[in-house]
């Protein structure tokens, strides 16, 4: 059984930006099986109010040290209590849960798009992409260079950028107020980048896929991104999905929804499926292919 549920020790709980905390947990069971995009269900309070566990995505997991890390924003009562926990306190967690991001071997130009606290799971993803890139499927050394478009409300909120750079990602930052990097949204940068790298008129967009498959280079003679991964607020995901529908690049988005059980039993965290009906964010997701959902 790869699902863990129980009490684990808090290693540290540090405020890394205003209202944003990074917590390290000692949980070899979860660290062993966790993959990027998966989450933990955390019981912030031992009593009955707040009652529900809080789903928080995994920002790092290390099999060797048995450590697992979360980065969370204080948004309400539950996360408020979580923020006040200290080193050596015990925490009741369940996980890893959900379906994460696919991390194929040998990608060279993955693109990640993150907004605010949505950057947290992308850190874990970036590391896995880098680790899985060292050789492609033919055993050749690759020239891995990821691209990260990340957005925050302001410069003081920015976190994880050094980490992304260490994972060989070129990072471009946006802020809503322009206090750091570009003023605007990371999806603007994604769009601009794709226009630059695949200058294909709308009428020929069908061909974009085959161009990508054969690794033919476009007019700019650059390698096309093999996949786009996104996590962030809904408007960001909507835009990423819209862009994805035009480029045909495989695009994965991680969604957020009010959740109760976290294991797929209660059907509380429904997200609208493009195939009709609903999917469960907790079990069918939280990561979906962009075309699977109606946002």
């Amino acid at each position: 059984m790869s699902l863990f549920c129980g009490s684990v020790k808090i290693i540290d709980n540090v405020e890394i930006a205003p209202g944003i905390f990074r917590m390290g947990l000692e949980c070899p069971e979860a660290a062993e099986s966790a993959s990027p995009g998966q989450f933990l269900q955390i019981r912030c309070f031992e009593g009955l109010a707040p009652l529900l566990r809080r789903p928080i995505s995994i920002a790092a997991a290390d099999k060797d040290s048995g450590m697992i890390e979360i980065i969370y924003r204080v948004v309400g009562e539950g996360t408020g209590i979580l923020a006040r926990k200290t080193k050596k306190d015990m925490l009741d967690i369940m996980g890893p849960l959900g379906k994460g991001f696919p991390v194929p071997r040998g990608l060279r130009r993955p693109v990640i798009v993150g907004g605010g606290i949505g950057v947290a799971p992308l850190l874990f993803l970036a590391k896995s992409l880098k680790e899985n890139s060292s050789r492609d499927s033919y055993g050749r050394e690759s020239d891995f260079c990821g691209l990260a478009f990340v957005g925050f409300s302001s410069g003081e909120e920015v976190f994880g950028m050094q980490f992304l750079e260490d994972c060989c990602f070129n990072v471009e930052i946006c802020t809503d107020d322009g206090s750091e990097g570009h003023k605007g949204f990371p999806t603007d940068l994604l769009e601009e980048y794709l226009k630059h790298i695949m200058p294909i008129p709308a009428s020929n967009r069908e061909n974009a896929k085959s161009a990508g498959d054969s690794e033919c280079t476009s007019a700019s003679s650059a390698i096309l991104p093999e996949a786009v991964y996104a996590c962030g607020p809904e408007p960001l995901l909507k835009k990423v999905k819209q862009i994805a529908s035009m480029t045909k690049i495989p695009t994965y988005i991680s969604v957020e929804q009010r959740m109760a059980c976290g294991v797929g039993a209660c059907l509380g965290c429904a997200v609208k499926s493009s195939g009709g009906g609903y999917l469960r964010a907790c079990r069918d997701g939280p990561v979906f292919e962009a075309h699977q959902l109606i946002l």
Partner: peptide, 23 residues
């Protein structure tokens, strides 16, 4: 049945409101 559109869950003091709609 597909059930009700989200939100389907809302936390209250020591309780939960749900409106799953028999999916």
């Amino acid at each position: 049945r597909c059930g009700n559109p989200p939100p389907r869950i809302y936390e209250t003091p020591a309780g939960i409101l749900n409106s799953i709609g028999l999916e």
